[in-house]
Every structure is written in C-alpha cells, then in structure tokens.
Design a protein around this nucleic acid. Structure first.
Length: 463
RNA sequence: GGCGCCUUGGCGGAGUGGCUACGCAGCGGCCUGCAAAGCCGUUUACACCAGUUCGAUUCUGGUAGGCGCCUCCA
C-alpha cells in the first residue's frame, strides 16, 4: 500500500490519506436540468478512477456522487418542456446515468438524490435554527453567515471584504446580504413542494450536500470533491452548514479544473458546450476517457476536435500494440521461465515492473494521470522496438487502473466474407497481380477492414 | 475592486535548481510490390525584466497577458 497524497484546497498542502479507516469520498454530481457535457464528465471520471486506484492499493473506499434534482433551473426547464418538474428531473437523471454508464467505469457506491433526503435536510435546518445559526423569514430559512467565524476559510475570502454594496431590492428577507437560503418557501408555479416547520417549500442549494454526505459517509469523511467552480459559494456554504451544527465535515478538499473550449470555461450558461453523449458517439469511450486523463485533474484542460482526435490516435496506438502483442493466456507460462527472457525483461529502467511501479507512484502523487500515462507510452515504445516479456500484461494492468483495459481485449474475428477476400488477395499477390490485390484491399476497406501484411502473413483489423 | 490559478517546442500537456517527460501533427528515412502497423531521425521549448546561485525553465521580486470564482455552473 502506497502513501497516497492529494493537494487539499483548504490547507493548500498535499495531505496523505488515512489508511486506517474507510476512505469516504463525496463528489458533487450534476444538477439535472439538461444533458451533461464533457466538463460535467470530468469529475465523474476523475473520482471514479481515483477510487479505483485507492482500492487497488488496498484502501477500503466508498464513493458517493449525488444528484441534485430540485432547483430553480429544473422548474424553469420543465416548464419550458411542458412537463411536470418531477418527471423532467427523473428523465434527466436517467439520461445522466445512461451517459455516464457509457464511460464504462461502473457506478459510484451510492448516488443519493436531493429529493430523497428531505427529512434529513429539515432536521439539519432545525438544528441550525435552534442554535441560532439560521433564522426563518417569510417562509424561507436563511443561514446567518456572521454567526460562523470560519466562514470563508475554504475559498480564502473574508466576510468583511464581501459585505459591500447594497442588496439589490430592499425587500430582501435576509438579515444580511451574505446570508444564504437553506429552505425556500413554495412559490406560485413550482409544482413540487414538501411540508416543513416553516411551511410548504423546498430545499435551497447547498444544504442537500451537507446532509447526503453525512448520511452516506458519516461525519468527518476523508475527501470532498467537485469542480473548482464549486469552491465558492457551494462548498464554503456546505462547511458552514455542517460545522455550525457541530457536525465535523470533510478532511480533504479535492477540486478538479475546468474543461475549456476556446480558452473559456465550458459551461451551460455560456453555451460553449459539447455533450458527453455526442463525444462518446463521435470518438468512442476510450478516446473520451483518455482525453479526460490527459491532463492533471487540478489544471484546466483544453477541449476541441483536435484534442479529441489526438486522444483517439493515442488510443489507437495502444490497440495496435495489443493486436501485435497478445496477452499471455492464463497458465501459458511464467515470465521468469525462460532464463534469457528473464534477463532481458529485467534490464534496468525498462522492465515492465519498474514502469508499473512508476505508473502507480505517479497516481499516488496527487493522482498525476499524465505522468502515469507517459509510463504507458514509454513501455509501449520499448516493447514495440523489441519483445519485452511481461510488457502486455503490465500494460493491461496499468490501463485497467484508468479504465482503458478494454484496449487489450481481443477483437472479434473477421467474418467469412472478409476472410475469403483476404485469401483471394493473397493469391493475387502471389501471382504479382497487384492491381487485383489492391482492388480487393479497397473492397475490404469498404466493408470495414484494414489489411496489415507482416512476415507472418496478412491480418485484418477493424477500421 | 477582492481572492486564487496560469503563461513550456505547430498543438495538447508533465516536470525539475545542472541529466531526452510524454503524446499528436508535420517533415526526412527504414521496412513494404504499394499501403497499413511499427521503428529511427527531426533544426538550442520553457512570456518579459531584474535578483539569489558556480549554475534557473525550475527559487524571489516586478512587468505584460490569460483564466477561474466573487450570480446559476463539474
């Protein structure tokens, strides 16, 4: 088991993960008011793979990714779609599951819904009201920011600095403009609401995450994650709500950077989005995953057709490697059986073992996926140059950790028509009738096959 | 205005006080009947100005530019 370190947003320092207890990870998922885009997929991929890595290192890990399914924008979008908001949210939640399923990384251990957490939300708000960290006002309930001395510690802001200017509209129900809503009174036009001690209404943003995290992971869990755009106000407010109520919260804060399109953050409100489903259709799941791990998770990552095509090319190189270097079948001989092979395989700095070690070391060091993938590239190059015993197996293990082991799987065999054409082409080549051989190759391309000649004869690869 | 981050070769993107990151693309070559795949090579990459240092892309200060958050946002 390696020591795994993550750069903590709160302290600004790398922090080691405690191996003595279950590593609870709570990552903020989407608000389901539309289909998700590539940017929304980044945290899903980062945290899924990070949890996978921790498990492979022997850490007992529990990953929770919530869905926020009640919100102003959901009401608005549902109205626009002429659909009850609960139906709309359910439809979008299902679409989110379908899209992320297609990434092939499995599901988080728990995916709680805000609308299924109402009683816990009300209980937390009651606690806060009782302790005067919150107050009811006109059917709403607000958090009293000035009552929480640590407010601003995550995003490094001071309430004094923020508390400037006039509240827009003097009719505010808040005592102070920094106060934020915990509960919102039912409004005309909103077609869902719940009973509460403050009247019918619904939870505001932020509060659901405080409650779901604690319900799923207990107090004082290891890691709270999400996009860097959530640091303020969302995560700052979560800390305030939970800690003001005397409930210890996250130990480490882990934030992923934004996907950028045309050097600007990809965001639904700016409209410069590329939907995940479309990316999967166009480039395939491996390219999408390879793209998302091509940069360090904390850094912004440029998005564009060029980047996606590059990722697809990288993925194709890996596929080609496994086409030419099949995995040893189980029981087909040990790496150390042949003394000559053993010697070559253990040459310093180039052995599969040392690459695998470096790969895992990179992931243990603030989950540095690009550094890890550089080890994959190096080993592929070495093994393409000359046979390196154990390389395919080591590569498959590395790729499994980043959800790309499907690249090592054998592809379906060519159909009989393609096989017949390939044989025909060989006959033509044998007769040095290259015009006919090339025509047959074109025909094979039309039906989806690329011919690769080698010393061992031709083979067919799907286009 | 406040807080934080960033500026690396055509593009993407790691990293380090002195040693080729890596990938993609282009170009040249090897292999091949031709391709495909693979391999080899590819013209001094670290925004600018000072400082610290034997030595800075890497540390410090400043300048310029960019991004994020401060309102919904992964």
């Amino acid at each position: 088991m390696r020591e795994v370190r993550i750069r903590d947003t709160l302290s600004g320092e790398p922090r080691a993960i405690d191996p003595t207890e279950v590593v609870g990870i709570y990552a903020c998922g989407p608000t389901v008011y539309s289909r998700i885009h590539i940017g929304n997929a980044r945290p899903f991929v980062v945290f899924s793979l990070f949890a996978r890595f921790l498990r492979s290192e022997g850490y007992s890990t529990r990953l929770v990714v919530n869905v926020t399914d009640v919100n102003d924008k959901i009401y608005a979008a549902a109205t626009a779609a002429g659909e009850p908001s609960t139906d709309f949210a359910a439809r979008m939640t299902a679409a989110y599951s379908e899209d992320t399923d297609r990434l092939g990384l499995g599901r988080p251990d728990a995916e709680p819904l805000a609308t299924e957490t109402i009683s816990g939300i009300i209980a937390l708000i009651e606690d806060l009201v009782r302790s005067e960290h919150a107050y009811a006002s006109g059917g709403d309930v607000y958090f009293r920011v000035r009552s929480f001395a640590d407010y601003g510690k995550l995003s490094n802001r001071r309430p004094e600095d923020m508390d400037q200017g006039e509240e827009a509209g003097s009719a505010s129900l808040k005592e102070n403009r920094l106060d934020f809503a915990l509960w919102k009174a039912h409004k005309e036009g909103e077609d869902s609401h719940w009973d509460s001690p403050w009247g019918p209404g619904r939870p505001a943003w932020h509060i659901e995450c405080s409650v779901m995290a604690e319900q799923e992971l207990g107090a004082s869990f290891a890691i709270h994650g999400g996009g860097s755009d959530l640091v303020f106000p969302h995560h700052e407010n979560e800390i305030a709500q939970s800690e003001a109520a005397g409930r210890p919260f996250a130990q480490i804060w882990m934030h992923n950077g934004m996907i950028e399109s045309d050097a600007a953050k990809m965001s639904k409100s700016d409209g410069n989005i590329f939907q995940l489903g479309e990316a999967l259709d166009r480039y395939g799941r491996e390219a999408v995953v390879a793209y998302l791990i091509s940069g360090h998770y904390r850094q912004p990552l440029a998005f564009g057709p060029e980047q996606m095509e590059e990722a697809a090319a990288r993925v194709e190189r890996l596929r080609n490697f496994f086409r030419g270097h099949p995995l040893r079948a189980a029981g087909e001989g040990d790496p150390g059986e042949d003394p000559a092979e053993q010697q070559r395989g253990s040459s310093p700095g180039s052995s599969p073992d040392s690459r695998l070690t470096s790969f895992r070391d990179a992931l243990a060091d603030d989950f540095n996926t690009p550094r890890a993938m550089a080890e994959v590239s190096e080993l592929v190059g070495e093994a393409n140059r000359e046979r390196v015993p154990g390389a395919p197996e080591a590569l498959r293990e590395m790729l499994e950790l980043v959800g790309l082991d499907s690249l090592a799987s054998a592809e379906g065999a060519a159909d009989s028509e393609a096989d017949a054409l390939m044989m025909e082409r060989e006959e033509a080549r044998g007769a040095r009738d290259f015009e006919r051989a090339d025509a047959i190759r074109d025909r094979l391309a039309e039906i989806g096959w690329t011919v690769r000649d080698s010393a061992d004869g031709p083979s067919l690869v799907p286009r």
